[in-house]
């Protein structure tokens, strides 16, 4: 049960990353690898601020702003200086590696016995359970701290999902979605598509940094390496989500991204439990994303070929 709760909590925290990547990868169709750097940026900045005694909420908010800035720079590199999107992301990600080391002053900062964004929820749950440090959930004894983290990440990601859903349906959000679809059309409607790209990347990386900030507080440390491969994990989550609920509306797409992230974390937890070497995790994820990207086209081709074979057979 602890395993499941842990996977759910991390899944919910990382769903903010998936929501951020939904904006860049799905809405404006920008393959943004800044993500690998900005999630660490969020984590490292929050860790340092909390370690120096900042309020965890304020520290988390600062991480969001730092992510905004990082994403905006990637956007400017691409739109203003005409650098290819992948390269713009790689430049920013590489720069962020040094920046993150500068922020932390070393490669790892532990957060032990410091407050976090789920402190209040934990206190509330402790009061409810009458001061015990374990509580009964459907017959399982679960540490109150774990439940607190689960609840606060649940509330946070639901809240952000609702705000994002509303935002994407506004006049501004509608144009944002059109930017990835048809930039020429967006210009013809009087909107600077480059500005929309910069804004979207900023918002996207802001959410990613937010995810990193909360992740650092949950796992109790920030590490300069923690962002490696996060973008591919986000992609995997989005793909799973799309397979789960389709993309019939914005609400469904957002729901899918969150569910996909949770399911992906559960799958990882199960695979690790069954003895998958953690070192192989990123390879397995990469292969999975590869398959998910090529499978639809492959099935289509296969279907066409089968049809051909059949029509041949019928003709003869």
């Amino acid at each position: 049960m602890n395993l499941v709760i842990g996977a759910f909590t991390i899944g919910l925290i990382l769903s903010l990353l998936s929501l951020g990547m939904l904006i860049s990868f799905k809405m404006i169709k920008f393959t943004d690898i800044t993500v690998d750097g900005s999630i660490t940026l969020g984590a490292s900045l929050t860790a340092v601020l909390i370690a120096t005694g900042w309020n965890p909420w304020l520290a988390t908010l600062m991480a969001f702003f730092a992510g905004l800035l990082a994403g905006a720079i990637t956007g400017v590199l691409h739109t203003k200086f005409k650098i290819q999107e992948i390269l713009a992301g790689i430049l920013m990600m590489t720069a962020l590696y040094s920046i993150n080391l500068r922020i932390m002053g070393r490669s790892n900062i532990p957060l032990l016995d410091t407050g976090s964004v789920s402190s209040q929820t934990e206190q509330l749950l402790t009061t409810i359970s009458g001061g015990a440090d374990k509580m009964n959930v459907f017959g399982w004894e679960v540490p109150v701290a774990d439940m607190g983290a689960l609840f606060s990440s649940l509330v946070l990601s639901l809240l952000l999902a609702i705000v994002l859903n509303y935002f994407l349906k506004t006049h501004f959000g509608t144009v944002l979605r059109a930017t990835g679809n048809n930039p020429q059309m967006v210009r013809a409607q009087g909107v600077n598509n480059n500005t929309m790209v910069v804004f979207s990347l900023a918002l996207s990386n802001g959410l990613v940094a937010l995810s990193g900030a909360i992740l650092a507080q949950y796992q109790g440390f920030a590490d300069v390496q923690m962002g490696i491969g996060m973008m591919v994990w986000g992609l995997a989550s989005i793909i799973i989500g799309e397979a789960l609920v389709g993309k019939s509306s914005i609400g469904m797409t957002i729901t899918g991204a969150i569910l996909g992230t949770i399911l992906f974390r559960l799958l990882i937890a199960i695979a690790l439990r069954w003895g998958l070497n953690p070192n192989d995790l990123k390879l397995v994820t990469a292969v999975f994303v590869f398959l998910a990207l090529v499978a639809p086209a492959m099935f289509k081709n296969l279907g066409k070929r089968l049809q051909k074979v059949r029509s041949h057979a019928n003709n003869q």
Binding site: Y166, F167, K169, T170, H171, F172, G173, T174, V175, R177, A178, N181, N182, Q184, M185, V186, A188, Q189, G190, V191
Partner: peptide, 30 residues
């Protein structure tokens, strides 16, 4: 295909045109 956004609905496309060259407020569009 150049004048409209393929993945978006007819209503969403037209709503964008209803504010051509104007501000895009944070209000539900459709």
């Amino acid at each position: 295909f150049a004048g409209s956004a393929a993945d978006m609905t007819i209503a969403e496309n037209i709503v964008m045109a209803m504010r051509r060259g104007q501000s895009r407020p944070l209000k539900i569009a459709v």
